[in-house]
């Protein structure tokens, strides 16, 4: 069976439960919608508004799913349909590798951190393709912006997330989590990397101040301009899920994910505790993202690129240097 250590020796039913209900797809679906609610509600409260009701994201999703689904005449039908599905599928696949209930995910192997990083890049490319093939000038312009901004946040994001792996000397998320629990000082050493990864994640999610591809005051809705109905619902869901998985990845790599795990009998009790710890840490990262969104305004494309190359990447390199020094001076 392809289960990790934590799920060893459990029958196929429990694996299916893990895959589809908790902490699998159904849970990710609910958590993504909750995250969007939290995002909009806290954003509204910080502007002294009341904000949307609790079930608002769900109502948006159902309404979009029940609406007419228009494919423009000029759009490439196949790519136009495939883009949101590819984006969502990549996010859901990345989610399975995150250690949520125990220190191993559904399947843990050496290098799973790199796999998750690459899977998290695919939704951006899907957004670019969707915008490009929508046959609309605004969509193509937005798609170009998505693609041109990709490298400005992707490089610091990768560099920052590799720091804990460098300190620990393993590409396996389970090892990183174990190491962080036994060496709490590791968080202070990689604090700079955490901040860089947080800013880069904000750019990855195309939220303020980096919502240049969407920029509703300039190019209407960017790549999503021709999307309606089910396809738009899928894109919105993919974006929310990307926020959950990105925040969860930061929580795992920098904040030790579901650890410390209390060993309880029977084993699923300790899973529940692990999942709760993971949730608290993920919500903390999401809260920081929302805080950043409500504190800033949008910047221009050239400002973002120069910010990334002048500040984020050099600082990420400094962080990697620190990590290597710490490793050679005998560890923490």
């Amino acid at each position: 069976m392809v289960c990790g250590k934590g799920v060893e020796g459990i029958d196929i039913l429990l694996t299916l439960l893990y895959l589809f209900i908790f902490p699998g797809f159904l849970f990710l679906f609910a958590f993504s919608l909750f995250t969007e609610y939290l995002d909009r509600k806290i954003y509204a409260r910080m502007q002294r508004r009341v904000g949307p009701p609790f079930l608002q994201p769900f109502a948006d999703l159902v309404k979009l799913a029940a609406k007419e689904d228009v494919v423009p005449e000029k759009a490439e039908h196949f790519m136009f349909t495939a883009a949101p599905i590819i984006g969502l599928a990549a996010i859901f696949a990345a989610y399975l590798y995150l250690p949520i209930v125990s220190s191993t995910g559904l399947h843990s192997f050496n290098g799973d951190l790199v796999v998750v990083l690459y899977l998290l890049t695919i939704p951006t490319l899907a957004l670019f393709l969707g915008g490009w093939y929508s046959g609309n000038v605004f969509g193509q312009k937005g798609g170009m912006r998505v693609a041109s901004l990709l490298f400005s946040y992707e490089i610091p994001f990768f560099l920052a997330l590799l720091t804990p792996a460098l300190i620990e000397g393993s590409w396996k998320m389970a090892d990183i989590v174990h190491f962080e629990i036994s060496h709490p000082l590791e968080f202070i050493v990689s604090l700079l990397g955490f901040v860089i990864a947080l800013i880069a994640l904000q750019g990855k999610l195309e939220r303020l101040p980096f919502d240049i591809p969407e920029a509703e005051t300039e190019i209407v809705a960017g790549p999503l301009v021709e999307y309606s109905g089910r396809r738009l619902a899928l894109f919105r869901l993919a974006r929310d899920a990307e926020m959950v998985v990105g925040a969860g990845l930061l929580a795992v790599v920098f904040l030790a994910g579901p650890e410390p795990i209390v060993q309880l009998e029977p084993v699923y009790l300790s899973w529940i505790v692990g999942a709760l710890v993971f949730l608290v840490k993920t919500l903390f990262v999401i809260f920081l993202l929302i805080l950043m969104k409500s504190a800033v305004a949008r910047i221009r494309t050239d400002q973002m690129i120069s910010f990334a190359y002048k500040w984020l990447i050099p600082l990420a390199l400094v962080q990697i240097f620190i990590a290597i020094m710490v490793r050679f001076l005998g560890g923490i």
């Binding site: 909009r40 209407v220 809705a221």
Partner: peptide, 21 residues
């Protein structure tokens, strides 16, 4: 504007007719 806050009722202003109800 925030004073009336129509987002309470789920109202969002969209720029493109494809998203609008």
């Amino acid at each position: 504007i925030p004073r009336l806050d129509v987002e309470r009722f789920g109202v969002l202003l969209k720029g493109t007719p494809r998203h609008a109800d």
